[in-house]
Design a protein around this nucleic acid. Structure first.
Lengths: 188, 188
DNA sequence: GATGATTTGATACATAATATATCATATTGT
DNA sequence: ACAATATGATATATTATGTATCAAATCATC
């Protein structure tokens, strides 16, 4: 009933791989749809049978990554153990370096931030009740969560752009001291 | 000798104003060069006599803003008085709301971050010698400065996107507690 | 394995935007 | 007033997007 045609899944995977490879080669903006379909060895018109434009293909890639990523982090909490969670995040980024580079450096980086925001809101209750939170800060909750998530993404961006000069454990520690703990402390 | 033809300055100003207005109306990506030249009431080919593409026009606008912005902040330091400087920043953003919205929400927001980074590096020595800095943190200097600047830009983005729900003074305070002071403390 | 449904490839085509070239006209700096 | 330069208008080449069509291949299911 609800199963997806093998051909569809195959075509979409080919298009996704092609976009990732081409973005690494010449930059997201300079990749044309013809480039993608040629690389994927797929008819040109076939692209539009799956995605209305390039951005939607990127979004699809991001969605898949998000799911895998959340599964990885599920056993821990960014609040209960900031350093450990931070390290896990940077280990994941290291293991999926090319994919992350594409998602975070495509012109559309900002669109990546929206799903990330959602992840933040899912943990909101957890954050709000955490003992590290003093409750005496001046920072509204919504701002704090926004800051937490976007700053982490920006830190990952920096790390990738500078060829990962520190190991994941160290980056986790940095994320904790620079972003996670201060945010908890400053929350209203 | 070095002076610029009045016609050139006039045309460039018209193109800049047109891009800002059109970006607010329909979004940066959807603005065509024909749109710009029509709105500016200028010949189509004239655009390319000044800029190779839309991004370079945006860059020109950004450059002008950067200069004005730095002149505004010159008497103060983000380090000596974080709250006051923060408030000043948000007051400027409020006064130049439309311009800032265009620069921070155009797809190319990331290109805005590069000049901002430069501003940060100019203050680097000042930051490094500030008494608020404990010197016991684990965060490398380059990461701290990157974090400081990008987080401020992201906070401004949030403020604009959410219709500026708090006054500039409050935002300056928030920026200080959430970003500036923690960064100084965590610096190595 | 046969069959009806769906996807794909190939092709043609319409549209839109970018970018360049040319030349008469208008404006500028001196 | 005059030489230099910028502009407007127009034509044209190029590139990319997006749609339409139909035969052939592939799929799910029985």
């Amino acid at each position: 009933m609800d199963r997806i045609d093998r051909r569809v899944k195959r075509t979409q995977k080919l298009l996704q791989k092609a976009l990732i490879a081409l973005t690494l080669e010449k930059g997201y903006d300079h990749v044309t749809i013809r480039d993608i379909t040629d690389r994927a060895d797929v008819g040109y018109a076939t692209f539009f049978r799956h995605y209305p434009d390039k951005d939607h293909l990127l979004e699809d890639i991001l969605e898949a990554m998000k799911d895998e990523f959340l599964r990885l982090l599920a056993p821990y909490s960014i609040i209960t153990d900031p350093q450990k969670t931070g390290a896990l995040i940077f280990e994941y980024v290291q293991a999926n370096q090319e994919l992350c580079q594409v998602l975070l450096n495509s012109t559309d980086t900002m669109s990546v931030l929206k799903p990330v925001q959602k992840i933040g809101l899912q943990e909101e209750r957890l954050i709000y009740n955490h003992p590290n939170r003093s409750g005496e800060g001046v920072v509204p909750k919504e701002i704090a969560i926004h800051h937490l998530m976007t700053s982490l993404v920006m830190l990952i961006r920096w790390w990738l752009e500078n060829d990962m000069p520190y190991p994941p454990e160290r980056m986790g520690q940095i994320a904790a001291e620079l972003i996670i703990l201060p945010t908890l402390k400053a929350m209203q």
